[in-house]
Nucleic acid binder design. Sequence first.
DNA 1: CTTGCATTTAGATATTTTCCTATTTAGGAA
DNA 2: TTCCTAAATAGGAAAATATCTAAATGCAAG
Lengths: 105, 105
Amino acid sequence: MEKAFKALASTPRRRILNHLAGGPMTVGEIASKFDMAMPSISKHIAVLHDAGLLHRQKRGQEVIYSIAADNLANSMYSFLTPFCPEARALAAERKLTRETEEGGE
Amino acid sequence: MEKAFKALASTPRRRILNHLAGGPMTVGEIASKFDMAMPSISKHIAVLHDAGLLHRQKRGQEVIYSIAADNLANSMYSFLTPFCPEARALAAERKLTRETEEGGE
DNA sequence: CTTGCATTTAGATATTTTCCTATTTAGGAA
DNA sequence: TTCCTAAATAGGAAAATATCTAAATGCAAG
């Protein structure tokens, strides 16, 4: 509870959750969406994971994170999100990167 | 959203919400539950109010705060709370002060 | 208009958070 | 082993937060 709310009280961390809503990603993939150094992203991911909001899976030397959909705080967050103005910007950001990637391949 | 999560990411502020769940209170009444200087409490209340989580009403020189039950983030919080271990402690605290007050009057 | 009480604002300090660069760990491939 | 890449950790500077005491504000009563 404490951890979940602290984790969600950060814009970069909510943006990470939002990107992961589009599917699992490696740390590097997540970092590529941000104009922020990798260790900072890694730290944010660790906070989210420690709060039980992310699942972690290793594949070779990569670490894949995904939303812990079973987590209650997470469910509430995704329920709440569409009602907030902030959500539009986040959705747009997610959509944009997906289209760019599809178009660029 | 930003403000609501930041507001909820603090133990004293969640405790304030919990106390207010028992009914509206003045700033002084809220402060009496805490071992913390009045200005600090006042600040916490201001954060909650600014996040839209509290309603504010003046009665003479007193200011009465109450839970903004219509607020979405608030609803989420009160829904989520009973599922968390933290909730038991909060409920016990609320119950204790109510009994003490009733017994002491 | 002065006094008294409830609340808020100001200003200072200590702690926590955030972010960076540099380094370390771990895995896969030559 | 040695090299390369992905991710995490270490250490430190800057910004935000929390808390206190002291002072200001607002309101009501005398």
